[in-house]
Computed example of a mutant assay.
Amino acid sequence: MSEYREPAAAGDVIRLDSVSKTYRAGAPPALARVSLRVGTGEAVAIMGPSGSGKSTLLNLLAGLDRPSSGTVTVAGQRIDALGESALARFRAQHIGIVFQFFNLLDDLTVLDNVLLPAQLAGVPRRLASRRAEQLLERTGIARRWDAHPARLSGGQRQRVAIARALVNSPRLLLADEPTGALDTATGQEVGALLRELNAEGQSLVLVTHDPQLAERQRARVVRIVDGQVEGAGQAVAR
């Protein structure tokens, strides 16, 4: 399969250039010479079979892993070239991550879970609290602000996770199977919330096995097979 390169654009929030990732010497690469562009405000769904490299790609975009070769640029910053502390600061300020299984801290309340990234980024408590309260209203979970995650439904926990991911007003929102742990109706509600956020200008990249979720997001689909981008990605009209 030949390497696919998309044309660069001035408004790119993501730019990958010839990115490869190998975890063990002699093993096939998890990603091989992937080049990809995602525009500011765009929604992109990363799809492909299990083991195709989707999670590796998401981890590279989040700065949770580093490429073996190539460059990863997010919001104008080459994150593969940053040291660990600078990378952690950049991620806290510019990247929000929503996980399949929520990753909330059970000993913290809903509000404190949402506030945590802002506290780690050094945002003043008053400003962070105002932002967190707005997001809890926006995601429909404000009435449970003082509850602990164990007392919430799966859909409520994912709404808290989305609010937490947005508290620092990130340039990029990454979602890893955001509806995978939810029932169909609740998954559709969470998907609708993500769609609304993207319609308001939030750049969104999600990994999903669900083509209906990608279609509802009106996302451009990027398919990964054996660590490589297959074709140019299918653009879905907005």
Rank of each mutant, 00 (worst) to 15 (best):
V222Y: 03
R171V: 05
E42M: 06
L60S: 13
V236F: 01
I141V: 15
Q234R: 14
N113Q: 11
D17F: 01
T139H: 07
L206C: 13
D12V: 02
R78S: 14
L116V: 08
H94A: 11
D226T: 04
A88H: 04
V34K: 02
M1E: 12
T179F: 02
G154H: 00
A81C: 09
V114R: 12
E6L: 15
K54H: 10
G26S: 06
L64V: 11
T179A: 02
L172G: 10
A235Y: 05
S203N: 03
R5V: 15
R159H: 06
N113H: 05
K21W: 06
F102Q: 01
L152F: 08
V221C: 01
Q100S: 12
R157D: 05
R66H: 14
V34A: 12
A118N: 06
A163P: 11
R131M: 11
A25K: 12
Y23H: 14
E84W: 04
R216C: 02
S69E: 15
N168S: 05
P170Q: 09
L174M: 03
L57D: 11
L206M: 14
G48W: 08
D106I: 08
N113E: 11
G122Y: 06
A181V: 00
Q202A: 09
L193P: 00
I46Q: 08
R126E: 14
A25F: 02
L127P: 03
G76T: 08
L57T: 11
A214I: 02
R195S: 08
R144H: 13
P170E: 07
D17I: 09
A199L: 15
T186S: 12
L87D: 10
A232C: 06
N168A: 09
L174F: 07
A8P: 12
R126D: 13
E42H: 09
A62L: 14
A92M: 12
R125S: 13
R151N: 15
F99M: 07
R171I: 00
E200A: 15
T184H: 08
L136H: 04
Q158E: 10
D17N: 13
V190E: 01
A9R: 15
V225Q: 11
V229P: 02
T40L: 07
L213K: 03
G83Q: 05
R216N: 13
V225G: 00
G201Y: 06
I97G: 10
S55P: 07
A199I: 01
F90P: 13
V190L: 01
E196K: 13
P7E: 15
A62N: 13
D80I: 10
E6T: 06
